[in-house]
Amino acid sequence: MSHPNNNLPSNEEVELIVGNSNSNFSGVTSTMLQVTSIQKDMMNLRIMGKHFVPDPSLVISFWDVVKMCRKPLSNGKWRIFHARRVDEMIQGVILKYLFGAKIKLVFSSAAQRKRSGFTVWLSNRMDAVIAMSNRSASFLNKPPAKINLHGVQTENYLPAENKQEAWQSLGYGGKYGIGILGRVREQKGVHLFVEACIEVLPKYPDVNAVVVGAISSSNQEFVNQLKDKINRAGLAERIIFTGELPFEQIPKIFSALSLVSALSYNEGFGLTVPEAMSAGAAVLATQAGAWEDIIRPGVDGYIVPTKNQKAVTEKIDLMLSDMDQLAAMGKAGREHVVQNFKVEDEARNLVEFFRTLQ
């Protein structure tokens, strides 16, 4: 548990204000907290909004920011305001243009869809827009100032020393495990994974599969239909829906899996893939999120088109046909993430970019 840091510099010299407007915990909240835990040792920062912040001394209110930003820092530089959501852009625009705050506005954009006219208007008020992947950059109305991919906490997502033992200790049966993680719904491509498993698992008696994630009431019928298909194929003990597991168990699951699929139709970023790679799992992912920027096809996994059952089934079959090669892909993925996609790199790249704006 984090304890308040009483040695923080005063608000007078805060250089970075980080938006935190959502009271629901989300992927954006998670990445913000991970990045700021490192950034706070690089820049004097405060988080605007108390939701989920472990250290209350880092929290600042909107009205504190209004007061603090009436004048620039003592060295004459302006503070940075970093928004990751549309409503945080709105807050930043109000601070700067209504209250005259001496701030530079930065927005990190992950969405992969055409933006509304209002969002485009807001992003045009920013001093800089950062894209979270090449794919998200292509949806912006003008080129981003920077592309900065999310990083992973590589010390939390570690490969098991022995994947077979780690998998067997989880109690899902079989010698090896493959899986898909995240909310269980059609948009995540869960049915593509299940249909592929029904097709190929009879060829690989040592391999069992898990579908890990929450099932909402609106998706229960979707899951029931998949379970019926699994039962008819006689695979009920080999393709298991775990339901939602405690967050702290997820790294353990990743570290035991030999292959992780991520088959979303669209994705803001998709941390599942680099987290799985960090944990030494080979990966199969769709052309969504940042996955094409991260996966090296044939080296640490494969990329398939979205909504393509045939491609998913063929690639899972190919990957399971050589377990030594699958393990080698997992090792290659771990090295790739450690070298290129650590959360420390994401934080440092952001701070270096912020310095260029001040």
Rank of each mutant, 00 (worst) to 15 (best):
M1N: 13
S2F: 12
N6I: 10
S10R: 12
E12V: 12
V14Q: 02
N20W: 06
N20Y: 09
N24K: 15
L33I: 07
V35L: 12
S37Y: 09
I38W: 08
M42P: 06
M43C: 15
P54C: 11
I60T: 13
S61V: 05
M68K: 12
R70I: 09
I80P: 01
H82R: 12
I90S: 08
G92L: 02
G92N: 03
L95N: 00
L98K: 11
F99A: 05
G100V: 09
I103T: 05
S109H: 15
S109A: 15
R113K: 15
V120H: 10
L122T: 05
I147W: 07
L149F: 10
G151M: 06
Y157H: 08
K163A: 00
E165K: 14
W167T: 00
L192E: 00
V194N: 01
C197Q: 02
K203H: 14
Y204M: 07
V211G: 01
V211E: 00
N224M: 11
N231L: 14
I240S: 02
I240N: 02
T242K: 08
T242Q: 06
T242I: 08
L245W: 03
P246G: 02
Q249P: 08
I250R: 06
I250W: 08
F254T: 00
E275S: 03
A276C: 05
M277Q: 06
L284A: 04
A290T: 03
E292I: 07
P297A: 10
G301P: 01
V304Y: 04
L318S: 10
L320C: 06
L320H: 03
H336S: 01
K342R: 15
K342L: 09
V343H: 01
E346M: 15
A347M: 03
